[in-house]
């Protein structure tokens, strides 16, 4: 177990290092410095700016400084917002995004998993067909299309919910639903096929034969085993939610980190793009690591030292 965890941690660090390096190189490959603008800035000011942000140092020194900063959780200043650091953006935006993301994850699991179970128990009946139809629509219709549709119907036509902004619990509902739909659909599809696998096995027949109630068979024997493969989807789920927030926060004008990231991309705030990419990368890698380790503990059959195919 310790060896497995160590291996995973090591791989995650290597991945993070590669991501940081690639991002750093790409951001420095862009022609022109960060302060190259249409309006001419006096020579002396340019020199001062370059000196303040160490832009005159050789590239390898800037790279090592940056890596050192990353190791100390210091992602440097923003070039477009003077006086603000990338850490400030994260401190301000991440709690909002995290709140939205967690609500969406809970929603997708709370609806998707039971839907998948019901679907498998009523295979090829109307419950199954309806769920699977909704699921394939959920997989096919992107969240940035669901969001405007929800907004149009529930805010602009029915006036049930506020159209945008953040703060009130009512303002959480639509973005959370839009964000949750894709993972919800994926959960129900995965849960269905996993349940179908399990309920055709012999030990389920045994459980029925010894006279257990249908509820006990489903709950204690089938679901408990079928839920295992679902855990592997948690990693991609977090990534999907995260990329979803880029768009959803934009549409609903939510002051989260996703909107900040899109803003810096559009305004070419290179240090912020670099810093937030490293932050997101580290976040996702840590989440995947946790999921991997949980999976290792949950399923004793998994080969801990072997590699995953």
């Amino acid at each position: 177990m310790a060896r497995y965890i160590l291996q995973r941690v090591f791989a995650a660090f290597v991945a993070l290092w590669i991501l940081t390096t690639v991002t750093f190189v790409l951001m420095h490959a862009i022609p022109g410095g960060p302060f190259t603008r249409e309006r001419n800035v006096p020579e002396a000011i340019m020199r001062n700016l370059d000196a303040k942000y160490h832009l005159n140092d050789p590239l390898w020194k800037q790279y090592l400084d940056y890596l050192g900063g990353v190791a100390r959780f210091d992602l440097g200043p923003s070039f477009k917002f003077p006086g603000q650091t990338v850490n400030d953006f994260i401190r301000r935006g991440f709690p909002v995004s995290a709140e939205l993301g967690i609500i969406a994850i809970i929603l997708s699991m709370a609806v998707g998993i039971p839907a998948g179970i019901i679907s498998a128990l009523r295979q090829n009946k109307w419950q199954d067909n309806t769920t699977m139809l909704v699921a394939i629509v959920g997989v096919s219709v992107p969240s940035f299309i669901i969001a405007p549709v929800l907004m149009y119907v529930f805010a602009l036509k029915l006036h049930w919910l506020p159209a945008a902004m953040w703060g009130d619990w009512k303002q959480v509902i639509m973005p959370a639903v839009a964000l949750a739909l894709l993972p919800l659909a994926t959960f129900s599809r995965l849960m269905r096929s996993s349940m179908l696998d399990v309920i055709s096995q012999d030990y389920i027949k045994t459980a029925r034969a010894k006279g257990l109630s249908e509820l006990a068979v489903t709950w204690r024997h089938a679901v408990k085993n079928a839920i295992m493969p679902i855990v592997t989807y948690l990693g991609p789920l977090i990534a999907a939610i995260l990329t979803g927030t880029f768009v959803i926060e934009q549409i609903f004008a939510i002051p989260g980190l996703g909107r900040q990231f899109v803003w810096s991309v559009n305004n070419r705030d290179y240090t912020t793009i670099l810093g937030l990419t490293v932050f997101y990368g580290a976040f996702l890698l840590i989440m995947n690591l946790i999921v991997d380790i949980i999976y290792g503990f949950l399923d004793p059959r998994i080969q801990l030292t072997g590699r995953k195919e």
Binding site: T23, L242, L284
Partner: peptide, 23 residues
Amino acid sequence: MMRIVDIIYGIPLQLVVILLMVV
């Protein structure tokens, strides 16, 4: 070769696409 794939798999690819497009 597969170890390399494993490691790249860990990198959030959506971010890499965004970076490439920015550059």
